[in-house]
């Protein structure tokens, strides 16, 4: 471990210890926050009892669905948009300002359109992720060497074959960057939507526990979501680094 990483670990542990001390000393009252050791015990109890399994499965399942939609739609749109210069110029201002727009503001509208089920949540998650995938796909396609495209033409590959066998594999590292963002965005979208209004899932359970002042359930769930999303992000970041290193890009 490097010196910075050691310090980081120590500081984080120190922060948790300080929180523990403040909670036990009663500076932070029990209605506001639970001491960290109790959160961990509660988390273990909740996970062992299995009462959360359905909520966890629902949230992760919806996030996976949103991610799949964002990837499929994003890569396909990227391929199409890349071919039409004019279309790309027109859509550029949209891509540039897209992440400034509060996508969650569309959630009520989506509930009216699709009803209160999984569909509007998956829609929000996919909506958040798809533009990151499109932008990174375009970025990757821009960097495909011309000579490879010429080779494809010489070998008389059809446009679909060219896409599948030449351009997409060549742009893969950039698309992976988009995928990394799409994973984070689909989780954010699903959990955010569950928070605002829904009938199940981890976000829903947190907001339900919050309205019931049930801190013994709320804090473990918050910690669980944070652990899950941070773990997923770290795993993908490692994977991305390996692929980039193999291509000599990092």
């Amino acid at each position: 471990m490097t010196r910075a990483a050691t310090w980081r670990t120590l500081l984080l542990l120190g922060a948790v210890a300080a929180l523990e001390a403040l909670c036990l000393a009663g500076v932070i009252d029990r209605i506001t926050m639970q001491p960290p050791h109790k959160i961990l015990i509660d988390l273990w109890r909740l996970l062992a009892s299995g009462s959360l399994n359905r909520a966890i499965a629902k949230t992760l399942g919806n996030a996976a669905a949103a991610f799949a939609v964002a990837m499929a739609l994003g890569v396909a749109s990227g391929l199409v948009i890349h071919r039409f210069r004019r279309l790309r110029d027109t859509l550029d201002p949209l891509f540039a300002t897209y992440y400034a727009i509060p996508v969650f503001a569309f959630y009520p509208l989506l509930i009216v359109l699709f009803g209160l089920g999984d569909a509007p949540q998956i829609f929000i998650g996919a909506m958040l992720g798809v533009v990151a995938v499109i932008v990174n796909t375009l970025n990757g396609l821009d960097r495909v060497p011309r000579v490879l495209l010429k080779t494809a033409r010489v070998n008389r590959l059809s446009p679909l074959q060219t896409a599948l066998q030449v351009t997409l594999p060549c742009a893969a590292p950039f698309i992976l960057t988009g995928a990394k963002l799409a994973v984070a965005y689909s989780l954010i979208g699903i959990i955010g939507a569950e928070f605002i209004m829904s009938n199940g899932g981890m976000g829903y359970e947190i907001s339900f526990a919050y309205t019931n002042f049930d801190n013994a359930t709320m804090y473990p769930l918050i910690v669980l979501i944070l652990l899950v999303s941070i773990t997923i992000n770290i795993v993908i970041a490692r994977w991305e680094k390996r692929i980039l290193a193999r291509r000599g890009l990092a």
Partner: peptide
């Protein structure tokens, strides 16, 4: 050195669904 220590923490916080922290803020 300080930026080496804190940058990964900031990046991790950047990528989590921050809405999960909102109930804590409401309680506080």
């Amino acid at each position: 050195f300080m930026s080496d220590v804190f940058e990964p923490v900031l990046v991790a916080v950047y990528s989590i669904p921050k809405i999960t922290l909102y109930p804590i803020l409401l309680l506080a």
